Amino acid sequence: MKTVSLLLVLTTLAFVTRASDQLKSVPKFYIYKTTKNTAIKNGEAKLTIHFDSPNFSDIPLGYQTIIYYSVNNVEDTLTLNTSFTATLRLAAKKTVFKFWPGPGYDEVITDTIQIENQTENEAQVNFYSENRMIEVDKPVIYLQNPVKMDFSLKVIPTNGFTFTYPVYEDEWKGTVYPTGEIELKGQKYPYLFWDSKQAFTLKKHTNGYRVSKEEIIPFLENQLSNARLTSAEKTDFITYWGPRMMQYESVFVQFYLQEDCNQFASIHCDPEPTVVNRLYIAFSKWNDKLEPYIHSIELPAFKRDGFNLLEWGGFELKSIAL
């Protein structure tokens, strides 16, 4: 199958890791029942496949229905109902199967299997979401408050820091000014910066966009304006992510908002902000198999009242050979 990329949302890493480990202990594909049936045309056979994944029950309607597959390198798709079962009619011969249920999953590829003539076969395919290491790039934290105020801020990334600026020592402790400047140990900063390399498991999501190279900047400007980022925040965001996205002629983009960002890091601030807004962007080189995951919506407007904290960051998921 073609090279694919990408993403969609998540459960907690701990849950997915346990579920993945359970599935790894059983074959990804196996035929568990074969029955002779002379009513089937000579030279043919029937294969009923039951698909399983710990994530299927959590995927919204529309995200769980498509299975990409090939039989001896001839590609096609299956549309599943809630039973996650499909039946194929095949030539009775040596066969190699490939199955892929969408972004966030490894492809299941079988060894060469002899499909016997005039038989009905029942098989099981087990999918799991593979944890992949990603660079959570340039999460930056802005603080705003109408009056000068002291604060302390703890950031706990899922897999530890690879870099922080200013240096993070158990917490960032300093003063925020009405201008948005942040002072720590006598030095002033426009924002607080951290990086992290993390294991990341893709799952369902509720937004997805295909954006051509020439539309990337207008797209980002529109979406960030909808979210009520300031001119300075939009400039920081676009000048970092725009060039990276524009290395491709077309990209698939998703946004992770608010509690969805807890998978990357937890944030604890004292005093507690009136509003916490978190926004991460994920992108990958476009592939036509991502078409079913397009769900274009406008980003919601963030509240920016009182003492508010804004964090943005993101990551690129490299293409996975399938």
Rank of each mutant, 00 (worst) to 15 (best):
L153A: 02
V147W: 05
Y293L: 05
G313S: 08
V125R: 03
F151A: 01
K289R: 13
N308H: 15
S53D: 08
F84K: 06
Q64D: 15
P218C: 00
F193A: 07
H268L: 10
T3C: 13
N262C: 06
I294L: 12
N121T: 06
F283G: 00
L23P: 09
K93I: 14
Y105N: 03
N159I: 03
S83F: 14
K318T: 13
N145K: 06
T79W: 15
I294K: 11
Q144A: 13
L290V: 00
K285E: 04
S53E: 04
V108R: 05
V108M: 04
W286G: 00
I156A: 11
W172T: 05
I294Y: 09
F97Y: 09
Y63M: 13
V108T: 06
T274C: 04
I267D: 03
A39R: 14
I216F: 00
V211P: 00
G242L: 02
V147D: 10
D76Q: 11
T274I: 05
L61D: 15
R210D: 02
D150W: 15
Y177T: 08
G104K: 02
G102D: 06
F99E: 01
H205A: 15
P157R: 06
L299N: 02
D270F: 12
D106W: 07
E311I: 12
K36L: 09
W286C: 01
L184V: 10
